[in-house]
Write a protein that binds this DNA or RNA. Sequence first.
DNA 1: CTAAAATCTCCAGCGACTGGAGGATCAAGA
DNA 2: TCTTGATCCTCCAGTCGCTGGAGATTTTAG
Lengths: 145, 145
Amino acid sequence: MTAMPTSTLAIGALAKRTGVKIPTIRYYESIGLLPEAPRTGSNRRSYDEASVRRLRFIRHARELGFEVEAIRQLLTLADDPGRPCREADVLARAHLAEIESRITRLEALRDEVRRMVEGCAQDQVRSCHVIEVLADHAHCLHDRH
Amino acid sequence: MTAMPTSTLAIGALAKRTGVKIPTIRYYESIGLLPEAPRTGSNRRSYDEASVRRLRFIRHARELGFEVEAIRQLLTLADDPGRPCREADVLARAHLAEIESRITRLEALRDEVRRMVEGCAQDQVRSCHVIEVLADHAHCLHDRH
DNA sequence: CTAAAATCTCCAGCGACTGGAGGATCAAGA
DNA sequence: TCTTGATCCTCCAGTCGCTGGAGATTTTAG
């Protein structure tokens, strides 16, 4: 005698549809990133398509490296579509800069490790530049650190 | 009557020179990433230039997202420059693969975030692509997520 | 009807720090 | 010389973003 409004999802189904683990979904609810899910008569959480979208939003943002606090802000914005989006833009741009910086630094490191691996064919690690790259500030392309 | 060998650094000085916070330095020592620092008569840790290099190494590797375990391996490599090629080669190649994978993933993320930012009309959230991209899976260029 | 699967809550732990409490020690100025 | 403030010590608890186990219940498939 379960009331089935349209089609509700159990937490496991939501997990499968979004790729977010069950404990993580509960965790998101506990920190208020997801609203408290309505419960069935036997106290199980039930979700709908809106939940899927919201959770995908969160997952996607996490994959993009956004911190939970940033996501919270983004969600607030998303929940209020009449608001100016400058805030979201600033958030995203800051993140973009960080990603680009990481790529550049990783590319420098990759080149050095590559050189090491190639040099390693006959030589020994003593010709390794990796340690220098990591240890020596001067090797950095950026001045943020 | 403190014995001053050449020039030793107190933990605070090391922190300033490397940009690593004092508690973090102690933490690194506690997990064995840094060797136990020699102590002065009054039980204070003292460091030298080698410590500076090692700690900078760790810091840079961490900034690039390497886990402590990976750094531990890289340090082992660095500590043993005469090490036979084969061993070092395997280690280095594994790290190279990891770096390359990381670059690829970051580039994908960069493209997405870039498209979000560029699509943002600076107007209202209803026309803001940041929200859309994050909310809607279909906006992704890549299928990994 | 029963056994397996899914769910619930609570709680503990992870990695990698971060910071506070409470106490010792050092460096410099009056 | 004294004293004040900065720095250091250890220990321990908290942070973030999960992750998984224990033990109890409930649903579902055969």
